[in-house]
């Protein structure tokens, strides 16, 4: 395994107004592995991914993708890095002016890599991978259920064959069987296609299935990092409380600011 991390984050800090969301995050994701990020609602997981995508400008810190410092890249080079990353947004973020298949094939069509006809065939293939029939391709995103939208978002993220994949809660809103199918698909992308993945999840079974490594975010910091297999018996009181869903422990529910 190469020793340059695919993603290397150091001292990443971001606040919105006077609310400190990320407070000095250090994180490495090695090539061909998957990292699961867990943490309470509102702890800044989505913001973390958006910073790496350059969608949110951090206040301080460095983000390197394949050794390139994102915050110092010119716009053109930044776009080039971004196009190597596929992203599933937490809410799907499907383009509701386009039919499902064009959503899925959007990245392919945008780079003019393929004709519309080929793109359509490819879209049907990827839709099948996420358990959706090709006929779904002609519907508009508004006609889909929440879980179907999520799967179309996932199909869109992986359709372009991106070497880096970000999944913001890929299985939230799916039934348990479909959740397992999607987890399998993500593992496939990493193990078979050699992609590098970062997944945010609240589902511990899913976290252990998807993740090689896991990290827990709490109050803007990474409080624990280790093998995803050890999530349930990490010995860290915060992680234990979180993964077992106990009400009492070091993490106290507080009203979020």
């Amino acid at each position: 395994m190469s020793d340059t991390p695919t993603i290397r984050i150091r001292g990443l800090t971001k606040s919105f107004g006077d609310k400190l969301v990320l407070d000095g995050i250090d994180l490495d994701v090695m090539p061909g592995t998957s990292m699961v990020v867990i943490g309470g609602s509102g702890s800044g997981k989505s913001v973390l991914l958006k910073c790496v995508l350059g969608l949110i400008q951090p206040d301080a810190g460095t983000i390197e993708v394949n050794g390139q410092d994102l915050l110092r890249l010119r716009a053109g080079a930044l776009d080039a890095v971004r196009s190597t990353i596929g992203m599933l947004f937490q809410n799907g973020a499907l383009f509701d002016s386009l039919p499902v298949w064009e959503n899925v094939a959007f990245g392919l069509l945008a780079t003019h890599a393929v004709t519309r006809r080929t793109a359509r065939v490819r879209a049907a293939e990827v839709l099948a991978q996420v358990g959706l029939d090709a006929s779904v391709g002609d519907l508009s995103p508004a006609e889909l259920s929440g879980g179907m939208q999520k799967r179309v978002g996932l199909a869109r993220a992986i359709a372009g064959g991106a070497k880096i994949l970000f999944f913001d809660e890929p299985t939230t809103g799916l039934d348990p069987i479909m959740g397992a199918v999607i987890d399998g698909l993500i593992v496939d992308c990493v193990k078979r296609l050699g992609s590098t993945a970062v997944a945010i999840t609240h589902d511990m079974a899913s976290a252990r299935r998807i993740g090689d490594q896991a990290a827990m975010l709490y109050k803007g910091r990474i409080v624990w990092q280790g093998a995803a297999a050890g999530l349930m018996d990490s010995g860290n009181p915060m992680v234990d409380q979180f993964t077992h869903g106990r009400r009492d422990g070091p993490i106290q529910m507080e009203l979020r600011k």
Binding site: D79, S83, I85, F89, L94, F95, F106, G107, R156, G160
Partner: peptide
Amino acid sequence: AELGTMRVTDQIDALTTLSTN
């Protein structure tokens, strides 16, 4: 209204991640 909805539902961010300005 259309662009605003696209903004608040992350669709504009999604464009950026799909090689589209």
